[in-house]
Simulated scan of single mutants.
Amino acid sequence: MDRVKIVYRGGEGEIVEKKSRFIATVCPINSEEDAVLFIEKIKKKYWDARHNCHAFILGERNEISRCSDDGEPSGTAGKPMLDVLLGAGLHNVCVVVTRYFGGTLLGTGGLVRAYSQAVQAGLENSLIVEKKLCCRMKIYTDYNGIGKIQYILGKSPAITLNTDYTERVVAEILIEKGNFNSLCKEIVEATSGRAELETLEECYCAVAEGEVIIF
């Protein structure tokens, strides 16, 4: 996939419904083992809670998905939690919602809403990024050509990682794969073929809190 939405940094959110506390803890995962370890960690942390329900999805196309009601009425916790993750378009993520019972029964509809809202609160306090499949490349040019190249890069979605000024100018950039060919063509035409282009690798990248992340 050219674009994948993930949780880069997990978070925690809490709601209270009729004195019951619902604490959602979100974590990025890369395997079922990661999910199991995370779920067990949260269960140990909140060992005195009535329920620790969970849901997780794995794979670029969500090939694996699991959920558990952990003692709540069937279909009132795990499935609604999973639906929130899927509805957000996320991949490779696990969430555990811990419930401290407040003494008042919420009913089926109330539980579904509470668990769904808890997950949404957890996601709101997480850092979510969209990984894009990019080409990492270097552009070699003389000092006469750098102005044209910088103009082209400035109006494109390319990310400039660094620029070295020595005997000639070398710019290292990231460009989304779908824009790679058109960018290369534009640079070649603008410099009459004098610029040299070197493709280094394909990688996923994202921008979060002003920083470029390469996966």
Rank of each mutant, 00 (worst) to 15 (best):
G10R: 07
G11M: 15
E12I: 04
E12R: 15
E14S: 02
I15F: 03
I15D: 01
I15W: 04
E17H: 01
K19Q: 14
S20I: 07
F22K: 05
T25S: 10
P28D: 14
N30R: 07
S31V: 14
E32T: 09
E33Y: 06
D34T: 06
D34A: 09
L37S: 10
L37I: 07
K41Q: 09
K41F: 02
K44Q: 07
K44N: 04
K45S: 05
K45I: 08
Y46Q: 03
W47N: 04
D48K: 14
D48A: 14
N52G: 12
H54A: 15
G59M: 12
G59Y: 12
G59V: 13
N62I: 08
E63A: 15
E63C: 15
S65P: 07
S68D: 13
D70S: 08
E72V: 11
P73Y: 07
T76K: 05
K79N: 05
L82N: 02
D83I: 03
V84D: 03
A88Y: 11
A88P: 05
A88R: 10
G89R: 12
H91T: 12
V95P: 05
V95N: 04
V96G: 00
T98K: 00
R99I: 02
G103H: 10
L105Q: 11
L106F: 06
G107F: 06
G107V: 04
R113T: 09
Q117S: 08
A118S: 07
A118I: 00
V119C: 09
V119Y: 10
V119H: 11
G122K: 13
G122E: 15
L123E: 14
L123R: 13
N125Y: 05
N125L: 11
L127F: 12
V129K: 09
R136D: 10
K138A: 06
K138N: 07
Y140V: 01
T141G: 08
D142C: 07
N144H: 07
N144T: 09
G147M: 09
G147F: 09
G147K: 12
I149K: 02
Q150T: 02
Y151E: 09
Y151F: 09
I152V: 00
L153G: 00
G154A: 00
P157A: 04
A158T: 02
T160N: 02
L161Q: 11
L161R: 10
Y165N: 06
Y165S: 06
A171Q: 00
K177V: 00
K177L: 00
K177G: 00
K177Q: 02
G178R: 01
G178E: 03
S182V: 04
L183R: 02
C184K: 11
K185N: 13
E186K: 02
E186W: 00
I187W: 05
V188I: 14
E189H: 02
E196Q: 08
E196H: 03
T199W: 01
C203I: 14
Y204F: 14
Y204Q: 10
C205I: 03
C205M: 08
A206W: 00
V207F: 05
E209F: 14
V212K: 04
I213Y: 07
I214P: 10
